[in-house]
Design a protein around this nucleic acid. Structure first.
Length: 272
DNA sequence: AAGACGAAAGTGGTTGA
DNA sequence: TCAACAACTTTCGTCTT
Protein backbone atom coordinates (compact mmCIF):
# COMPACT_ATOMS: atom_id res chain seq x y z
CA UNK A 1 0.00 0.00 0.00
CA UNK A 2 2.85 2.34 0.66
CA UNK A 3 4.56 1.75 -2.59
CA UNK A 4 1.82 3.31 -4.72
CA UNK A 5 2.78 6.65 -3.44
CA UNK A 6 6.39 6.91 -4.48
CA UNK A 7 7.44 9.33 -7.12
CA UNK A 8 10.63 9.29 -9.04
CA UNK A 9 12.79 11.57 -7.01
CA UNK A 10 15.96 11.08 -8.94
CA UNK A 11 17.82 13.75 -10.79
CA UNK A 12 15.94 15.12 -13.74
CA UNK A 13 18.89 14.70 -16.07
CA UNK A 14 20.69 11.66 -17.22
CA UNK A 15 24.44 11.58 -17.17
CA UNK A 16 26.32 9.75 -19.86
CA UNK A 17 29.73 9.99 -18.32
CA UNK A 18 31.13 11.10 -15.06
CA UNK A 19 32.49 14.40 -16.32
CA UNK A 20 29.05 15.40 -17.33
CA UNK A 21 27.69 14.21 -14.09
CA UNK A 22 30.13 16.28 -12.12
CA UNK A 23 29.25 19.38 -14.05
CA UNK A 24 25.54 18.95 -13.95
CA UNK A 25 25.11 17.74 -10.42
CA UNK A 26 23.52 20.71 -8.83
CA UNK A 27 23.00 20.08 -5.23
CA UNK A 28 22.36 17.37 -2.71
CA UNK A 29 19.00 15.72 -2.50
CA UNK A 30 16.71 16.36 -5.43
CA UNK A 31 13.86 17.56 -3.30
CA UNK A 32 13.15 18.42 0.26
CA UNK A 33 10.66 16.51 2.25
CA UNK A 34 10.59 18.79 5.16
CA UNK A 35 7.09 19.98 4.35
CA UNK A 36 5.16 16.89 3.64
CA UNK A 37 1.71 18.37 3.21
CA UNK A 38 2.66 21.73 1.77
CA UNK A 39 0.86 23.44 4.61
CA UNK A 40 -2.55 22.31 3.53
CA UNK A 41 -3.50 20.08 6.38
CA UNK A 42 -6.34 20.83 8.69
CA UNK A 43 -5.92 20.19 12.32
CA UNK A 44 -8.76 18.96 14.43
CA UNK A 45 -8.15 20.18 17.91
CA UNK A 46 -8.90 18.27 21.03
CA UNK A 47 -11.63 20.39 22.55
CA UNK A 48 -15.21 19.50 22.02
CA UNK A 49 -16.14 23.00 20.95
CA UNK A 50 -17.12 24.29 17.58
CA UNK A 51 -15.75 27.44 15.93
CA UNK A 52 -18.01 29.58 18.04
CA UNK A 53 -16.87 28.02 21.28
CA UNK A 54 -20.13 26.20 21.81
CA UNK A 55 -20.27 22.62 22.95
CA UNK A 56 -20.60 20.06 20.23
CA UNK A 57 -23.62 17.82 20.44
CA UNK A 58 -23.02 14.19 21.45
CA UNK A 59 -24.09 12.96 18.01
CA UNK A 60 -21.47 15.05 16.30
CA UNK A 61 -18.97 14.19 18.92
CA UNK A 62 -18.78 10.57 17.81
CA UNK A 63 -17.95 11.74 14.35
CA UNK A 64 -15.27 14.04 15.62
CA UNK A 65 -13.64 11.19 17.50
CA UNK A 66 -13.50 9.18 14.32
CA UNK A 67 -11.93 12.08 12.48
CA UNK A 68 -9.33 12.46 15.16
CA UNK A 69 -8.48 8.84 15.00
CA UNK A 70 -7.84 9.08 11.27
CA UNK A 71 -5.81 12.15 11.69
CA UNK A 72 -3.53 10.31 14.06
CA UNK A 73 -3.15 7.41 11.70
CA UNK A 74 -2.48 9.58 8.72
CA UNK A 75 0.10 11.55 10.56
CA UNK A 76 2.22 8.57 11.58
CA UNK A 77 2.05 6.85 8.22
CA UNK A 78 2.93 10.13 6.58
CA UNK A 79 6.01 10.46 8.70
CA UNK A 80 7.11 6.94 7.92
CA UNK A 81 6.52 7.51 4.26
CA UNK A 82 8.36 10.75 4.25
CA UNK A 83 11.36 9.08 5.78
CA UNK A 84 11.26 6.27 3.30
CA UNK A 85 11.01 8.68 0.42
CA UNK A 86 13.93 10.61 1.76
CA UNK A 87 15.97 7.46 2.13
CA UNK A 88 15.19 6.39 -1.42
CA UNK A 89 16.18 9.78 -2.75
CA UNK A 90 19.42 9.57 -0.86
CA UNK A 91 20.06 6.09 -2.18
CA UNK A 92 19.51 7.38 -5.67
CA UNK A 93 21.75 10.32 -5.21
CA UNK A 94 24.71 8.42 -3.85
CA UNK A 95 24.45 5.55 -6.30
CA UNK A 96 24.31 7.89 -9.22
CA UNK A 97 27.45 9.58 -7.99
CA UNK A 98 29.13 6.22 -7.77
CA UNK A 99 27.79 5.07 -11.14
CA UNK A 100 26.16 2.05 -9.62
CA UNK A 101 23.74 -0.07 -11.62
CA UNK A 102 20.09 -0.08 -10.82
CA UNK A 103 20.17 -3.61 -9.47
CA UNK A 104 22.44 -2.54 -6.66
CA UNK A 105 20.28 0.36 -5.79
CA UNK A 106 17.32 -1.94 -5.56
CA UNK A 107 19.21 -4.37 -3.39
CA UNK A 108 20.03 -1.50 -1.09
CA UNK A 109 16.40 -0.42 -1.02
CA UNK A 110 15.33 -3.91 -0.03
CA UNK A 111 17.79 -3.96 2.81
CA UNK A 112 16.71 -0.55 3.92
CA UNK A 113 13.06 -1.52 4.02
CA UNK A 114 13.90 -4.54 6.09
CA UNK A 115 15.81 -2.32 8.46
CA UNK A 116 12.80 -0.08 8.78
CA UNK A 117 10.51 -3.01 9.44
CA UNK A 118 12.72 -4.23 12.21
CA UNK A 119 12.96 -0.82 13.79
CA UNK A 120 16.67 -0.58 13.33
CA UNK A 121 16.71 3.03 12.33
CA UNK A 122 15.88 4.44 15.70
CA UNK A 123 18.85 6.23 17.12
CA UNK A 124 20.68 6.27 13.82
CA UNK A 125 20.48 8.84 11.11
CA UNK A 126 18.63 7.90 7.95
CA UNK A 127 21.64 9.01 6.00
CA UNK A 128 24.05 6.72 7.71
CA UNK A 129 21.74 3.76 7.34
CA UNK A 130 21.10 4.35 3.66
CA UNK A 131 24.81 4.65 3.04
CA UNK A 132 25.38 1.47 5.01
CA UNK A 133 22.74 -0.37 2.99
CA UNK A 134 24.30 0.77 -0.22
CA UNK A 135 27.74 -0.28 0.86
CA UNK A 136 26.38 -3.67 1.82
CA UNK A 137 24.49 -4.01 -1.44
CA UNK A 138 27.69 -3.45 -3.38
CA UNK A 139 29.38 -6.21 -1.51
CA UNK A 140 26.49 -8.61 -1.79
CA UNK A 141 26.45 -8.10 -5.52
CA UNK A 142 30.20 -8.53 -5.82
CA UNK A 143 30.80 -5.02 -7.11
CA UNK A 144 32.67 -3.64 -4.17
CA UNK A 145 33.07 0.00 -3.47
CA UNK A 146 35.15 1.00 -0.53
CA UNK A 147 33.64 2.51 2.52
CA UNK A 148 35.62 5.62 1.67
CA UNK A 149 34.05 5.88 -1.73
CA UNK A 150 30.59 5.64 -0.32
CA UNK A 151 31.39 8.01 2.50
CA UNK A 152 32.72 10.55 0.06
CA UNK A 153 29.26 11.12 -1.36
CA UNK A 154 27.24 10.54 1.75
CA UNK A 155 26.49 13.30 4.14
CA UNK A 156 27.77 11.49 7.16
CA UNK A 157 31.27 10.42 7.96
CA UNK A 158 32.81 7.07 7.38
CA UNK A 159 32.87 6.12 11.01
CA UNK A 160 29.15 6.43 11.42
CA UNK A 161 28.40 4.55 8.24
CA UNK A 162 30.65 1.77 9.41
CA UNK A 163 28.88 1.62 12.71
CA UNK A 164 25.47 1.45 11.06
CA UNK A 165 26.74 -1.11 8.62
CA UNK A 166 27.96 -3.41 11.32
CA UNK A 167 24.76 -3.02 13.25
CA UNK A 168 22.49 -3.65 10.28
CA UNK A 169 24.36 -6.69 9.05
CA UNK A 170 24.31 -8.17 12.49
CA UNK A 171 20.66 -7.52 13.19
CA UNK A 172 19.43 -8.66 9.80
CA UNK A 173 21.76 -11.63 9.70
CA UNK A 174 23.18 -10.56 6.40
CA UNK A 175 25.82 -12.95 5.30
CA UNK A 176 28.43 -10.92 3.58
CA UNK A 177 31.65 -12.53 2.56
CA UNK A 178 34.91 -10.76 3.13
CA UNK A 179 35.79 -8.75 0.08
CA UNK A 180 37.41 -10.77 -2.60
CA UNK A 181 40.24 -9.00 -4.40
CA UNK A 182 39.09 -10.55 -7.66
CA UNK A 183 35.92 -8.49 -7.52
CA UNK A 184 37.95 -5.35 -7.92
CA UNK A 185 39.70 -6.57 -11.02
CA UNK A 186 37.31 -5.52 -13.78
CA UNK A 187 36.99 -2.04 -12.42
CA UNK A 188 40.68 -1.44 -11.83
CA UNK A 189 41.66 -2.91 -15.17
CA UNK A 190 39.25 -0.75 -17.06
CA UNK A 191 40.22 2.36 -15.17
CA UNK A 192 43.79 1.72 -16.20
CA UNK A 193 42.83 0.94 -19.76
CA UNK A 194 44.32 -2.53 -19.58
CA UNK A 195 43.36 -5.34 -21.93
CA UNK A 196 41.24 -8.27 -20.85
CA UNK A 197 44.33 -10.44 -21.24
CA UNK A 198 46.07 -8.55 -18.48
CA UNK A 199 42.96 -8.77 -16.40
CA UNK A 200 42.69 -12.51 -16.85
CA UNK A 201 46.29 -13.02 -15.88
CA UNK A 202 45.81 -10.88 -12.80
CA UNK A 203 42.88 -13.02 -11.79
CA UNK A 204 45.03 -16.13 -12.19
CA UNK A 205 47.64 -14.63 -9.95
CA UNK A 206 45.03 -13.77 -7.38
CA UNK A 207 43.57 -17.25 -7.43
CA UNK A 208 46.98 -18.72 -6.80
CA UNK A 209 47.57 -16.22 -4.03
CA UNK A 210 44.29 -17.04 -2.38
CA UNK A 211 45.16 -20.73 -2.40
CA UNK A 212 48.35 -20.01 -0.58
CA UNK A 213 46.57 -17.86 1.93
CA UNK A 214 48.50 -14.78 0.90
CA UNK A 215 45.38 -12.71 0.90
CA UNK A 216 44.05 -13.31 4.35
CA UNK A 217 44.61 -10.46 6.68
CA UNK A 218 45.76 -8.30 3.81
CA UNK A 219 43.81 -5.43 2.45
CA UNK A 220 42.09 -6.80 -0.65
CA UNK A 221 42.74 -3.71 -2.66
CA UNK A 222 46.44 -3.82 -2.05
CA UNK A 223 46.59 -7.41 -3.24
CA UNK A 224 44.42 -6.67 -6.25
CA UNK A 225 46.65 -3.76 -7.16
CA UNK A 226 49.80 -5.83 -6.87
CA UNK A 227 48.42 -8.63 -9.02
CA UNK A 228 47.42 -6.15 -11.66
CA UNK A 229 50.81 -4.50 -11.54
CA UNK A 230 52.62 -7.79 -12.08
CA UNK A 231 50.30 -8.85 -14.81
CA UNK A 232 50.61 -5.54 -16.63
CA UNK A 233 54.37 -5.98 -16.76
CA UNK A 234 54.19 -9.60 -17.85
CA UNK A 235 51.89 -8.76 -20.70
CA UNK A 236 53.91 -5.79 -21.86
CA UNK A 237 51.32 -3.20 -20.90
CA UNK A 238 53.26 -1.86 -18.00
CA UNK A 239 51.71 0.58 -15.61
CA UNK A 240 53.70 2.32 -12.93
CA UNK A 241 53.23 1.50 -9.29
CA UNK A 242 51.90 4.96 -8.88
CA UNK A 243 49.18 4.53 -11.49
CA UNK A 244 48.08 1.22 -10.06
CA UNK A 245 48.13 2.46 -6.51
CA UNK A 246 46.01 5.42 -7.49
CA UNK A 247 43.07 3.46 -8.84
CA UNK A 248 43.27 0.98 -5.99
CA UNK A 249 43.40 3.80 -3.48
CA UNK A 250 46.42 2.43 -1.66
CA UNK A 251 49.94 3.75 -1.53
CA UNK A 252 52.83 2.76 -3.72
CA UNK A 253 54.49 1.29 -0.70
CA UNK A 254 51.64 -1.12 -0.21
CA UNK A 255 51.65 -2.13 -3.85
CA UNK A 256 55.36 -2.72 -3.50
CA UNK A 257 55.09 -4.80 -0.40
CA UNK A 258 52.29 -6.93 -1.79
CA UNK A 259 53.92 -7.46 -5.11
CA UNK A 260 57.25 -8.40 -3.60
CA UNK A 261 55.39 -10.90 -1.52
CA UNK A 262 53.47 -12.35 -4.44
CA UNK A 263 56.57 -12.50 -6.54
CA UNK A 264 58.49 -14.35 -3.92
CA UNK A 265 55.85 -16.78 -2.75
CA UNK A 266 54.47 -17.57 -6.17
CA UNK A 267 57.87 -17.86 -7.77
CA UNK A 268 57.18 -15.29 -10.42
CA UNK A 269 60.05 -13.43 -11.90
CA UNK A 270 58.81 -10.18 -13.18
CA UNK A 271 62.00 -8.24 -13.74
CA UNK A 272 63.64 -7.45 -17.07
C1' DA B 1 63.87 13.12 -14.67
C1' DA B 2 60.79 9.59 -13.47
C1' DG B 3 60.23 5.41 -11.41
C1' DA B 4 61.31 1.97 -8.04
C1' DC B 5 63.02 0.82 -3.58
C1' DG B 6 62.98 0.25 1.49
C1' DA B 7 63.65 2.08 6.31
C1' DA B 8 61.41 4.31 9.99
C1' DA B 9 57.91 6.55 12.40
C1' DG B 10 52.87 7.45 12.60
C1' DT B 11 47.76 6.22 12.24
C1' DG B 12 43.27 3.90 12.95
C1' DG B 13 40.92 -0.31 13.78
C1' DT B 14 40.61 -4.91 15.80
C1' DT B 15 41.39 -8.13 19.62
C1' DG B 16 41.91 -10.04 24.02
C1' DA B 17 42.57 -9.38 28.97
C1' DT C 1 38.07 0.01 29.07
C1' DC C 2 42.75 -0.22 27.91
C1' DA C 3 46.94 -1.85 25.78
C1' DA C 4 49.08 -4.71 22.28
C1' DC C 5 49.19 -5.65 17.58
C1' DA C 6 49.19 -6.00 12.47
C1' DA C 7 48.23 -3.74 8.26
C1' DC C 8 48.70 0.32 6.01
C1' DT C 9 50.32 5.19 5.34
C1' DT C 10 53.57 9.02 5.26
C1' DT C 11 57.83 10.66 4.56
C1' DC C 12 62.20 10.70 2.82
C1' DG C 13 66.78 9.46 1.13
C1' DT C 14 68.89 6.40 -2.30
C1' DC C 15 69.36 3.52 -6.27
C1' DT C 16 67.91 2.28 -11.26
C1' DT C 17 66.23 2.98 -15.89
Amino acid sequence: MLKDKFYDLGPEWRAFDSDQRDKRGRTGAPMTFTIHDKGLSTIIDWRNKDVHGRDISPTNRAQIYRLRKWQRRIRVSDAAERNLAFAMAELDRISSHLSLPRSIREQAAITYRRAVEENLIRGRSIESVTAACLYGACRIRGVPRTLDEVAEHARVDKKEIGRSYRFITKELNLKINPTNPIDYMPRFASELGLSTGVQKRAVEILEAAIKLGLTSGRGPMGVAAAALYISSIEKGERRTQREVSEVAKVTEVTVRNRYKELQEKLGLNVDV
